[in-house]
Write a protein that binds this DNA or RNA. Structure first.
Lengths: 170, 170
DNA sequence: AGTTTAAGTCAGCGTTGTTGACATTCCAAG
DNA sequence: CTTGGAATGTCAACAACGCTGACTTAAACT
């Protein structure tokens, strides 16, 4: 019966739980969970002329104010043309401010305006609310495991970006 | 110092670890990890004329052979027009076979061909390899927590799809 | 038999990713 | 001081994959 599959994998050093079936379930869980993860911000953005790309840009500019375009490029992992299109609309709409670098005037340093910060708040509030709910439901031990697995799943370069952001936390 | 942030959240019933900062880190972890999650299949698909949508269709047809288009629609959460474009190319390329329903001739039942199964294997091998590596690195307890949190993060309907697929496991 | 409902198709559009070519601006090395 | 290269930005074209709207066909229901 179904209960057999709902049992927790064996603890300890056993690695027998890594069957293809378990891995497939994990893959599907990742797929469905990511849909939930993005659902709330997507709903907010749908009403505006923005999409997920705008959300990501706003998130990381808020996270690291004054970041350069090139730095953002590395974090987001897209081409400058793709990012530029998003940034242009955000700047035109007054959500993002681009300041020429003082030391290196080739660089543009990006900041959220008050309006941009307001949208960031709205989006991240929604996303945090879901994450908070999931964490409360799952409990602290599960959360620790969740983060451990996510970090192990990243590519090394992404892991570096992640660590850099984390280590520069306020 | 950085070690302070690298400590595991407090265990037990404490919920103090649910600060906005912890949640934000989790959000970023989810973002970077999902990139890793899709990276390997994406690389394989890039060489062909296929994308992530084809991968998803192939995955779930393999998972539930004979599934109807409408069922697949509900699982994938896209419009039938969007799915149809993908299915048409997969059928034209001989990876998927579509059979008219016997009871209800309006329905089409979908199956992978040998060639389709071969591609599915290639894609899922790559994705499972990463997942297996992450699971081995993180350990069984972390894996259990990972799955718990992912399930709590899903929308109820997605959770139902996930459970249905899991309960029909071979 | 005629209407409604469901499944699937076709046409067209928007967002967001891609490449390629190119201009501009500027730092830094020769 | 000139030149090479780096950082940025723009234009154009294209692909993947979401979406809506209009339509055909088949089944089901009055």
């Amino acid at each position: 019966m179904a209960d057999g599959r709902m049992m927790a994998p064996p603890s300890g050093e056993s690695l027998l739980f890594l069957t293809d079936e378990h891995l497939r379930q994990a893959i599907e869980a990742m797929f469905f969970a990511y849909r939930g993860f993005t659902a709330d911000p997507d709903r907010i953005l749908a009403d505006m002329a923005y999409g997920r790309a705008h959300h990501r840009a706003i998130h990381f500019i808020n996270r690291a104010p004054g970041t350069t375009v090139n730095n953002l490029l590395n974090i987001l992992g897209v081409t400058k043309q793709s990012l530029n299109r998003v940034l242009r609309t955000l700047i035109a709409d007054g959500l993002v401010q681009s300041r020429v670098g003082r030391n290196d005037k080739r660089e543009r340093h990006l900041f959220l305006t008050d309006e941009g910060r307001a949208l960031e708040q709205k989006l991240s509030d929604a996303q945090r609310a879901r994450m908070r709910m999931a964490f409360r439901t799952a409990g602290p031990e599960a959360v620790a495991g969740f983060r451990t697995v996510l970090e192990a799943m990243m590519d090394p370069e992404m892991r570096e970006s992640f660590d850099r952001l984390r280590d520069s936390a306020p």
